[in-house]
Structures are given as C-alpha cells and as structure tokens.
C-alpha cells in the first residue's frame, strides 16, 4: 500500500515537474539585472517593465546585485548559461562589457534601461538630455521675453549633464538681448546645493541693482535650489528672477508648487522608460530589428500647474 502511494506520488511529481517545464518553455524568459534596485528611479523602471511583461506573459527574473557591478557580469553569465531570451541591464554598459560580450557570443539580445549607449546593446532606452535642456531654456527665454542677464549652472565633466548646457547656450545665444552673465560649475562633493548657494550669493553681491539678473538656468535641480536659497536670503525674491532646474526631484517639486522664483523643472518618465524597454524587448523577440542605438522616451515640463501630480 505504502509502496503504491509512494509510486503514485512520484509519478504525479514527475508529471507536475514536466508540466511546469513545458509551460516555462513557452513563456519568453527575460532577466532584468541591476546593482541599483534600491534606488527609487530604478524601482519605477522595473515595476513598469514587469507590468508590460505580465501582459505579454513573460517569465521575468529581476536580479539585484546590491551595488556590486562585477556581480552583474556574473549574473549575465548565469543567464546566458540558462539561455534566456533577452537580458535587460540598468548599469553603465562599459563596466559590464565582459558580460555583454558573453551574451553577444551566445546571440542573446541585451537591452539598456537608462544604462548608457554601447555597441553591444540592442538599444538603450532613456530620456533625451538635449530635449530636457531645450524645455527649460526655452521656458526661461519665453518668461523673460527674450531679454536680460541669465546665470547658468553647468557641469561639463559629466557627459549627461554637459549636453544640457550645450543646448541652453544655443537657445540663449539665439536671442540678441539675452546675455549669459556667468556659467558656474559648482562643487558637487556636498550634493551641490551649498556651493551653488555660495556662488549665487557672490553673483548677487556683484549685481546689486534690481532687475540686473533676469533668470537662473540650472542643468539640474540642486544648483537651482541653492540659487533659490541665495535669492531668498538676499531679500531679492520679489525681483521676478526666474529659476529652472532639471530632474524634478521632490524638493524641487515642493518649491515649484509654492509658486515662487523656482518656476520649472523637467521630469524623466521612469515608468515610460521601463515600459518602452519592455516594448523594445517585445519587438526583438517578435523578430524585428531595432536600428536606433538609443531610444528616447519623452520628458515632461513641471510647473506650478502640475508640480504636485
């Protein structure tokens, strides 16, 4: 009797395992590998990616190596061993090229989710830095009606931020009556707010007449916040100095919502990036080829009208 039960359950177990294996073989296997899952932006990407993946019925394996970049290479190797259908990474591709090469040799497509462009990636899905800077610099130019002195906060040492400065200079340069008063590169070792504030205090002191500074354009939010603090502390918040940032971090959104000098920033669409990455994977799994090495997801201008959304 006992033997028979054992035998039956063994058969059932084998059948169940076989059934599981069969159903798993039908669903596309996709691995998402990142060292940064604990960061809010990354979580948004991954959630949106999983949302689309669930609709498509994919079997998604999200792997967090908790800051360990070499482990990303190891996990890519493991996923290649498992012969997954596609791999998505959210890490600087130049640092995991050893793994990307293994995947390329095995013919497994790898996608970047806000990772950086690399010839070994099918495509990298991200926001367009040129576009974000165009949004805020044209906002500034429009608000000051094409004339006045503008202070720029830039950071050319970091390529994704450098491109923003290029566009803002071009936009301001296109208005004959806009003068770029100063281009400041703040010290970012303490996060960027404190030093930007100190630099802005010096600029305010050098330009004491009301109206002598029409706007502050910052390539990201921290210098904009620092400039705002300097302007408020100097008692010059009623001069109508327009401040813009980029990234729309929570602190920036709070300030924009107050309706003060900090008027606009640009939000990256993290959900959009995750969903667009999944769509790119779907296209390739469906047999398409993707020509764009970088796939841009539209960004959104944040003003007092939508800062609290």
């Amino acid at each position: 009797m006992l033997k028979r039960i054992l035998r039956t359950s063994a058969v059932v177990a084998v059948a169940a395992t076989a059934g599981l294996t069969a159903s798993a073989a039908l669903a596309a296997k996709v691995a998402v590998i990142t060292p940064y899952l604990a960061q809010p932006g990354t979580q948004f990407y991954v959630e949106a990616f999983q949302g689309v993946a669930a609709e498509k019925g994919w079997d998604v394996n999200v792997i967090d190596t908790q800051g360990d970049v070499a482990a990303v290479i190891s996990r890519i190797e493991d996923m290649v061993t498992q012969n997954v259908d596609a791999i998505v990474i959210n890490v600087d591709p130049a640092q995991v090229e050893a793994g990307l090469q293994v995947a390329a040799d095995a013919g497994i497509p790898v996608f970047g989710m806000d990772a950086g462009a690399n010839p070994l990636l099918v495509t990298n899905v991200t926001s367009n830095g040129y576009q974000m800077a165009a949004e805020t610099s044209s906002y500034v130019a429009d608000r000051i009606e094409g004339k006045g002195n503008v202070v720029m906060f830039i950071f050319d040492a970091f390529p994704p931020v450098q491109v923003r400065g290029v566009i803002a200079r071009a936009v301001f340069g296109n208005y004959p009556d806009i003068t770029i008063l100063d281009q400041v590169t703040p010290d970012v070792s303490d996060g960027g707010i404190a030093d930007s504030r100190a630099k802005m205090e010096a600029i305010l002191a050098a330009n004491p007449e009301p109206g002598s500074i029409a706007a502050v354009w910052a390539a990201w939010d921290q210098p904009a916040l620092g400039a705002l603090q300097a302007i408020e502390d100097a008692g010059r918040s009623d001069e109508g100095i327009v401040i813009t940032g980029i990234d729309a971090n929570p602190q920036a959104r709070d300030e924009i919502a107050k309706g003060g000098n900090f008027e606009a920033s640009v939000a990256q669409d993290f959900h959009g990036i995750g969903a667009a990455t999944a769509e790119a994977v779907a296209r390739v799994l469906g047999g398409d080829t993707i020509k764009q090495r970088v796939t841009y997801v539209p960004t959104k201008l944040i003003t007092v009208a939508n800062a609290t959304e």
């Binding site: 908790q66 800051g67 360990d68 970049v69 070499a70 482990a71 290479i73 600087d92 130049a94 640092q95 995991v96 090229e97 050893a98």
Partner: peptide, 16 residues
C-alpha cells in the same frame, strides 16, 4: 582582478 573584470574602478566596488 575586480577592476580588470569591470574595466573600471569605483571607490566602493570591493566592499562586498
């Protein structure tokens, strides 16, 4: 070895 594997160096990469 780590730096060679990731072809880069980061001030926290060995902490694990």
């Amino acid at each position: 070895l780590y730096a060679s594997r990731v072809a880069s160096a980061n001030p926290t990469q060995g902490s694990g």
